[in-house]
Nucleic acid binder design. Structure first.
Length: 577
RNA sequence: GGGCGCGUAGCUCAGUGGUAGAGCAGCUGACUUUUAAUCAGCGGGUCGAUGGUUCGAUCCCAUCCGCGCUCACCA
């Protein structure tokens, strides 16, 4: 993400009326700064370090970054912007995540601030430090421009002290906002302050017995021992309950923009009211929709449904994932493997179209937002011999190619691509190489498992053997190996087998019968494990005569069936583990 | 119950205050032999319903119907 860009005045002008959501959001922010007179725009995204960064984290940061960039263009980059990635790492550990090692270690620290919980991986100062580091690695890997802030550090360094004292002063106002949102029994025990126990180090959820505004302390009682404590609300000796915490943070840091998921609508509202009660102005923002899994159910980390970022990136490009995040943030969208090919292809189409668009249209083009105003040039392929301008090779085309090649090997696929466009390579087209690899994995994971090989019966076996023998004549080089010639031989073999003779075919005569579709179906089912397949002559030409004969040999020996069974079995055990 | 979103071709979805679009599926044809792919062509929609604003509404507003998500314990 470029740090400074000189924006074309025409672009800035067009931005004022561009009606895509990042600009609409940014305009709210422009209005806000006009009102407050603030000289800087501060964006925040929040993060709970009891888990690892996930696809929702990516969505929030990338969307916020899009608004930020739109804001910079809108204001001609005259107002500095910052993005804070805030880790709520002083929160108490509530339960032991079950996907981690050293569970006993974690269990012994239940209730302690996450920065006081030992790192189950033994590498960092604490569990929170570990997860914070992972968060930063993650954000850095995508090149986001942000500043990391730790709640623990902010609390301890006194960065929140002034506002914490205001919360103490205006305790009643805060309670008045919070209480109606709570159930009767919770109302009895609720306190916006959570003191850290001076002896056990636990984050205490206890009623406050006394407040001393001048001293800046709260008085509370240990429910187990009955011992009374007086704790400063400042200096990291206490933290705030979630909603007041959020409000306090907005006020203390001066946050101007923060978006949140739809599930947090009520929380945003309450925190906003608290922020006002503290004399602040709640940030601008909007509520984005949550993602759904393949069945339309909400994605939850505990259920493990939906997709992880790594899963997406093993098939589609980072850009395609960004596009998914850009599209319709207010709609509940299915986030599943089968949406990837389309996102990839849409991205490629937008990228190609961008080249010929004017400023106004470019601002409405997603790729402009994904790449902070500087989308890369598309990677075009010019077909050999043609004088056509190059075209983008699409993911769906690559998937077809993979199926035809019957191989997920990138080198094999590149061989096919060179047939279309000589001279291209992973070096000249690195992003296409990503697509090639993704398509290969997609084949491996989604296409290949769907295959169902079957054994040939006697007639089929004889016909296939005959085909293999005929193909041998191509192997010796005595005949040119063209797709057409091979296709012709395939037909001839089929024609010689009574089962596959079709007298009703167009142009068929008793002397020269047509060939039934059953012949081809047998080939596909036995050799490729598919109900349908590519034009087989073309397939053999691409795949190789020698290789095809080997394929037939294996089919006749029953190896294709057994190998595929082994593949499925290994895959299933791999999954269970 | 509160909040939000969605409803456009068989399916998945674009889209705009001025005669409705794409991909896939379907159908027809071509590629001097039928499948895949490709190419060419075709058909197909009361734009959920009703009312309002407007010269004109699929689009804006209101109401309703249907579907879905979410919150109401914790973060």
């Amino acid at each position: 993400m470029p740090q400074s860009t000189r924006f074309d005045p025409a672009l800035v002008d067009a931005a004022q009326t561009a009606n895509v959501w990042p600009f609409e959001e940014a305009r709210k922010l422009v209005e806000r700064l006009k009102r407050t007179g603030k000289k800087e725009a501060l964006f925040e995204t929040g993060y709970g370090p009891s888990g690892l960064p996930h696809i929702g984290t990516f969505g929030e940061v990338s969307r916020t970054s899009m608004v930020r960039h739109a804001f910079r263009v809108l204001t001609g980059d005259t107002i500095p912007t910052r993005l804070i990635a805030f880790s709520d790492d002083m929160d108490g550990l509530r339960k032991v995540p079950d996907n981690l090692p050293n569970k006993e270690l974690l269990a012994a620290s239940l209730g302690k601030p996450l920065t006081q919980v030992p790192d189950p991986f033994g590498k960092f100062e604490s569990f929170a430090h570990h997860n914070n580091a992972r968060l930063r690695e993650f954000l850095d890997a995508f090149g986001f421009d942000y500043e990391f802030l730790s709640a623990t550090e902010c609390y301890k360094a006194g960065r929140f002290d002034k506002t914490l004292l205001t919360v103490l002063e205006r305790y009643d106002a805060v309670m008045e906002i919070m209480l109606p949102s709570l159930r009767a029994e919770r109302q009895q025990s609720y306190s916006p302050f959570l003191p850290v126990h001076p002896k056990t180090g636990l984050v205490m959820q206890v009623p406050i017995e006394e407040r001393k505004a001048e001293a800046g302390t709260i008085v509370w009682r240990d429910p187990d021992t009955g011992e009374r404590f007086e704790t400063p609300v400042t200096g990291g000796h206490a933290k705030l309950q979630w909603k007041p915490d959020w409000a306090m943070r907005w006020v203390a840091l001066g946050v101007d923009y923060e978006m949140a998921g739809k599930d947090l609508i009520d929380s945003v509202k309450l925190s906003g009211q608290i922020a006002k009660a503290l004399g602040g102005l709640p940030p601008e923002g909007f509520n984005y929709e949550l993602f759904l899994d393949e069945k339309g159910q909400k994605i939850s980390k505990s259920k493990g449904n939906g997709l992880t970022i790594d899963e997406w990136l093993s098939y589609g490009t980072p850009d395609s994932l960004s596009l998914f995040m850009y599209n319709k943030p207010r709609e509940a969208k299915r986030l599943f493997f089968d949406v990837i090919p389309r996102q990839v292809d849409d991205y490629l189409t937008f990228l190609e179209r961008y080249q010929t668009q004017d400023a106004k249209a470019r601002l409405m083009n997603p790729v402009w937002h994904l790449h902070a105003g500087e989308p890369p040039a598309p990677e075009l392929l010019a077909a050999s011999g043609g004088n056509q301008p190059g075209t983008t090779i699409s993911f769906s085309m690559l998937l077809n190619l993979v199926a035809v090649a019957n191989s997920e090997e990138p080198s094999v696929l590149w061989g096919f691509i060179r047939r279309y466009a000589p001279g291209v390579s992973p070096e000249t087209h690195p992003r296409l190489d990503l697509l090639v690899r993704g398509a290969g994995r997609y084949f491996q994971d989604f296409v290949k498992p769907q295959k169902t090989y079957r054994l040939p019966d006697e007639v089929e076996a004889a016909a296939l053997q005959k085909l293999a023998d005929v193909l041998a004549s191509f192997e010796t080089g005595e005949r040119p190996m063209t797709a057409e010639a091979i296709q012709e031989e395939i037909y001839n073999v089929g024609r010689s087998v009574p089962r596959y003779q079709d007298l009703k075919a167009k142009g068929a005569t008793p002397e020269r019968p047509g060939v039934s579709i059953e012949w081809f179906n047998a080939i596909y089912q036995v050799l490729l494990g598919e109900p349908r397949g590519p034009r087989f002559g073309s397939f053999v030409a691409l795949y190789g005569v020698k290789e095809t004969r080997a394929l037939i040999r294996k089919a006749l020996a029953g190896q294709l069936v057994s190998e595929h069974e082994a593949f499925l079995k290994e895959r299933d055990t791999g999954r269970a583990a």
